[in-house]
Design a protein around this nucleic acid. Structure first.
Lengths: 246, 246
DNA sequence: GCAAAAGTGTTGTCCTTACACCCATGC
DNA sequence: GCATGGGTGTAAGGACAACACTTTTGC
């Protein structure tokens, strides 16, 4: 089976000529992606941040971002940023919003598409410590460079909504986790206390947890059971929601 | 009270110099916005579309879009497209997603941010008929130019989800509407039949409908009451949802 | 044996669903 | 008077919220 690059054939390029002229008439804008990388440890929701490179934002915190390369789509750029900064691949990553205020960057107009990612803190070691790459507790972040504080708030709200309708939270936990850990994740993200018995009942009834027959070890209290998340079962049982809930 | 344009002051520009050099090093990309404009009539969910300008997509349907001007943010560009094409302002408009596959446009790389809008079909007359601007029933659209069919599907799913958690549907209806019209909107968008009594009970119990004390006229059956949507009450009573529903 | 968190069931309330008959209008 | 859709109530089932005691471990 052979395939051509159609853009190289004479026929195709004559058809495309008007399209190319049109596209060339458009203003061009520098594009970046920024990643809001959520993690969970010490019972706190954390975000992975660096110190800004720019003099103007000296010592201020900044999201992990980079320009979008000319042959790269946004998803790839976001995955690349994540890989370059954390060494991790195949992590949960979702586009959240594109921010475009004309004065959002002091160096001129830059539009940024923001991705949110969730990953297990402990699985990974942040080999790259450039720009003081560190986890920061979400509720202790005050000022940030650019419009990044605003972006962070948008992503936090996005996450609060998203974990209630999609099992994202499991990405923040190790493969095996206790129900207490799971509940802690929900409480940290939602900023609310949940009833332990009802929480456990809810997850038990969903049938998405696999009992590993293992227990917590070295805890200073009665050890809890460890579970795995049943991704296969989740794919089968995704709800088809029809209801009205403003 | 006076304000400067800080970018014009000497102090500021020396601080910004490194930022500007950085931004200038980024690849630049042509950007567009595309609007998926939903309407509702004849009990069908419709979308406002034109015929593509491009030779390659001759006679194929295309979303309403335009380049993003160099001094314009995305929201403004989307509002401008809507205004230019429909003459309407201040309509519901929300950013949905940014599409960036490198080969999505035959004229070269173009990234597009897609907005969805909902508006009342009858309130407006589409004065501009360029490119055969017309409403098309969503379920009868087959082929489209570019990746617009895919975009449309993403926006339809977005809409299905969104109307169940936010009262968007009212934007598709005239100011005064009957419960039957409202139910028809939900049924058309969700592609599902809903129980009439339960639907009415649900909305009655929410307390978001104002009885106008007017009735339908010139209908060939018992006329229904006309209601208005109580936006003020909705703002007060927005739910603060904490629940888990995969 | 004490501190700390795991594990477990019941009850009341509310929401959702399913379902059938009479009513007002245009023709 | 008939066709068309408007308007209404109830009962059963399911989900959610509130709530307290016993168990297991480390120290």
């Amino acid at each position: 089976m052979f395939e051509y690059d159609k853009s190289l054939t004479g026929i195709q390029s004559s058809v495309n000529k008007d399209a190319m002229i049109l596209v060339n008439s458009y203003p061009k804008v520098p594009l970046t992606v920024d990643c809001v990388i959520f993690g969970f440890t010490d019972n706190l929701l954390k975000v992975l941040l660096i110190k800004s490179d720019l003099e103007q934002y000296k010592d201020q915190l900044s999201l992990l971002g980079d320009m979008v390369k000319s042959n790269e789509d946004l998803d790839s750029a976001a995955n690349r940023v994540l890989l370059e900064r954390t060494g991790m691949q195949n992590v949960y990553l979702e586009q959240v919003h594109t921010f475009s205020k004309v004065d959002r960057h002091p160096g001129g107009r830059v539009i940024t598409t923001v991705y949110a990612s969730l990953l297990d803190f402990k699985n990974q070691e942040l080999k790259i410590h450039e720009n003081e790459l560190k986890w920061h507790a979400l509720n202790q972040i005050s000022e940030m460079a650019f419009d990044h504080k605003h972006i962070l708030e948008v992503c936090h709200k996005w996450l609060q909504k998203r974990i209630q309708e999609h099992p994202l939270a499991f990405s923040l936990l190790p493969e095996k986790f206790s129900l207490r850990q799971l509940q802690n994740v929900y409480e940290a993200i939602l900023g609310a206390q949940l009833d332990r018995r009802n929480f456990r009942k809810k997850f038990a009834s969903m049938g998405l947890l696999i009992d590993t027959n293992e227990m917590e070890v070295h805890v200073t209290h009665r050890p809890g059971k460890l579970y795995k998340f049943d991704y296969a079962q989740y794919e089968l049982s995704k709800r088809n929601w029809v209801g009205i809930d403003f």
